[in-house]
Design a protein around this nucleic acid. Structure first.
Length: 638
RNA sequence: GCCCCUGUAGUUAAAUGGUAUAACACAUCCAUGGUAAGGAUGAGUUUCCAGUUCAAUUCUGGGUGGGGGCACCA
């Protein structure tokens, strides 16, 4: 007698062993058609897995995450089958499911071309039509290793070798083709359907290690219906439309050029946006008790040696040798400079916590392949601050930083924030006992903040553990921005101290924090989040005054002058073009408000507002307009 | 840095072993227009360095930039 418990609590009894498929059949005919895999006591299994003891069973269809992931996993196998049929001698390695799809890494001398992808895709569809039956076998480890070695699959043999002793080595067959795989899989290749597409090819290191050889990775996406596939492809297209590199060009915000890869040439409007963010943050930080400072961009090599940067960060540093052969480094971080400001003059425990902020421009020699528009550059401005405090103050200061960050994100329209906590990396400075303390204090602050957090093992900075603030944008992508790091190492290395109550010198704790992280990067994120239609108060060009014809140029100029005085940014468009042309022109560059001036407006001393993405006309008295909109010209929390 | 793709006016693209085309933008002129492109005229271009060739923007190699990934990371 065998008792099966279903997720709704219902129990079914069977006399003998039973498979998931048979249970599904028992429940309903339609379920048996839709069933893809099962879980038995929480373990995902094939539909034909023989259940021999009392178990809790759940049946998954394509509507479940587990079902869809299995479809993707199977599509990856079919990809590997197709590649090996078309290109004999190609070795298979791994082919996992990823967000929205899957990939498979192959070892092959010749690279796959775009045409190859098409051929492979057609072959995959053929394999689905062949509807090859899937079955699972468990092999002895050594037999499996021998078998794959004999077939020239040295990567597979290596993978089997690294499977822990005692774990089953399962081999899945789709017809004759077979692969080492944990499973589970659909019962046949036909079950996968044809709602997939191969999206790109790229290189990828074997086992993710850049010391290893490079394999060829084929990416694909796979869904359970044509509509889901179409929706996904549309979503990708929509995301491309908000690419900040494209919008930055269209909106005339910035550009890059060959003479300085990874460094931004800010145009007037982009720089205006940049400055609006800076002055907003100055105001917020001033309210929160920060003192703004500024330190040199170029500092002597010896300081970087003392701080540990020369050794641990040297590969990313720009250096400069002067005519008299002295070596300086262009700062990749602001911290050593800030500590020097702290070191100047004697500090008392009464001065703590001392919060020093700096909009510091740093340069880092990033690997060329990492550069990506504003999101990853070689020269960027950190909205940095260093908080010198006592060990007892760490938790409280961390909490106040967290609150400031959340407030600022909210002002800019990001309310969905999670934390990532990273502890000690392999490459680090300082004793483990010091790390123990720093990690504990930071973790305590996180717990008190009550925010959701995840742990990244070994991802901390070389001088201390850190929290990263990750925000979610309008289309669900997450971006790492702010960071908060506890540092019990640098102040000691650089000789920072304060006089404590008892008259003895003590070494302060230093917290490093950045709110947006990099202004450049944050602007990129803002542009993508808003598709270029930024909140009014940070929009660089808020209005353009357009006369209906030259007859109204004087009035339009007058309106423009008044707007400028009120702090609303404006241009007046007196070019030889008609109204339609100008509306199109400024709409494409995403000016939120166009102010149309003709006879009617002159007569009533008013403007007609035409908003971006609206064809409504709204006539408003000019004084009233200025009063209303200059009030909107600041952050929500100010 | 590694793998693949790629570099043509300000921008987006087209074409070619005999130095190149269009649209938009720009300039001048005409038109003076009420909510997403009015018309005419004009000026402007093959990423750099080698090689092959009578001839290279085109073919080959390299540098460099850009893109998609990997690795790295704010």
């Amino acid at each position: 007698m065998l008792n099966i418990t279903l997720p709704d609590g219902k129990k079914l009894s069977f006399s003998d062993s039973i498979t998931g498929f048979e249970i599904a059949e028992k429940i309903s005919k339609s379920l048996s058609k839709q069933a893809l895999i099962v879980s038995v006591d929480g373990q995902l299994r094939d539909l034909d897995f023989k259940i021999k003891k009392d178990s809790a069973v759940k049946i998954f269809t394509s509507k479940d995450k587990e079902g869809l992931e299995t479809i993707r996993h199977d599509t990856a196998h079919i990809l590997a089958m197709a590649v090996q049929e078309l290109f004999p001698g190609t070795q298979v390695t791994i082919g996992p499911v990823i967000e929205d799809g899957f990939y498979y890494d192959f070892a092959r001398k010749d690279p796959f071309t775009k045409e190859d992808l098409e051929k492979i895709e057609n072959k995959m569809k053929e394999i689905v039509d062949r509807n090859e039956k899937t079955y699972r076998e468990v092999w002895k480890r050594n037999d499996a290793i021998e078998h794959f070695k004999k077939n020239g699959e040295i990567y597979k043999a290596e993978i089997i070798n690294s499977i822990p002793e005692g774990e089953e080595v399962s081999i899945y067959f789709h017809g004759k083709w077979h692969d080492l795989c944990r499973g589970p899989h659909l019962s046949s290749t036909g079950k996968v359907g044809k709602f997939f597409k191969l999206t790109k090819v790229s290189g990828a290191y074997w086992r993710g290690d850049s010391n290893n050889e490079m394999l060829q990775r084929v990416y694909g996406t796979s869904w359970s219906t044509q509509k889901e596939l179409d929706d996904y492809l549309l979503r990708i297209e929509e995301a491309e439309k908000r690419d900040h590199r494209k919008l930055g060009k269209e909106m005339d915000l910035f550009h890059f050029r060959e003479e300085s890869p990874g460094s931004v040439f800010w145009h007037e409007k982009g720089w205006n946006l940049f400055q609006k963010l800076v002055s907003y943050m100055r105001m917020k930080q001033d309210q929160a008790g920060y003192k703004e400072i500024n330190t040199p961009e170029i500092l002597d090599r010896t300081l970087w040696e003392k701080s540990g940067h020369w050794e641990k960060f040297g590969a990313n540093m720009y250096t400069s040798t002067t005519p008299d052969e002295k070596v300086f480094a262009i700062k990749p971080m602001n911290c050593p400079g800030c500590v020097q400001v702290f070191n100047q003059g004697l500090k008392s425990y009464r001065d703590l916590p001392l919060k020093m902020s700096e909009f510091g421009k740093v340069h880092r020699y990033e690997p060329s392949g990492a550069l990506h528009g504003l999101l990853r550059v070689r020269a960027f401005t950190q909205d940095d601050a260093h908080i010198f405090c006592t060990e007892d103050q760490i938790t409280e200061e961390c909490l106040s930083v967290t609150n400031l960050i959340l407030e600022i994100y909210k002002d800019l329209g990001f309310e969905n924030v999670i934390l990532k906590y990273s502890d000690r990396p392999d490459l680090r400075v300082g004793d483990d006992s010091v790390w123990d303390k720093a990690e504990a204090a930071l973790l305590e602050a996180i717990k008190e903040s009550k925010l959701e957090y995840s742990i990244n093992k070994g991802e901390g900075a070389f001088y201390g553990p850190k929290i990263e603030f990750v925000l979610m944008d309008a289309i669900g992508r997450d971006w790492q921005c702010g960071t908060l790091q506890v540092d019990l190492n640098l102040p000691g290395r650089l000789g920072a101290s304060y006089v404590d109550k008892d008259g003895n010198k003590k070494i302060p704790v230093m917290l490093h924090r950045a709110l947006f992280g990099s202004l450049e990067r944050f602007i990129g994120i803002l542009i993508e989040n808003y598709s270029g239609k930024l909140p009014f108060w940070i929009t660089p060009l808020q209005s353009v005054v357009i006369p209906v014809s030259n007859d109204f140029d004087e009035y339009a100029k007058n309106v423009y002058e008044q707007l400028k005085k009120s702090g609303i940014s404006a241009e007046v468009d007196l070019k030889n073009h008609n109204l339609n042309y100008k509306i199109r022109d400024h709409s494409l560059s995403k000016v939120p408000m166009l102010l149309i001036c003709g006879k009617k407006e002159v007569d009533t001393n008013s403007v007609t507002i035409r908003r971006l993405d609206s064809t409504k006309h709204e006539n408003m008295d000019l004084k009233e307009f200025i009063k209303q909109y200059s009030a909107f010209n600041k952050a929500p929390s100010i």
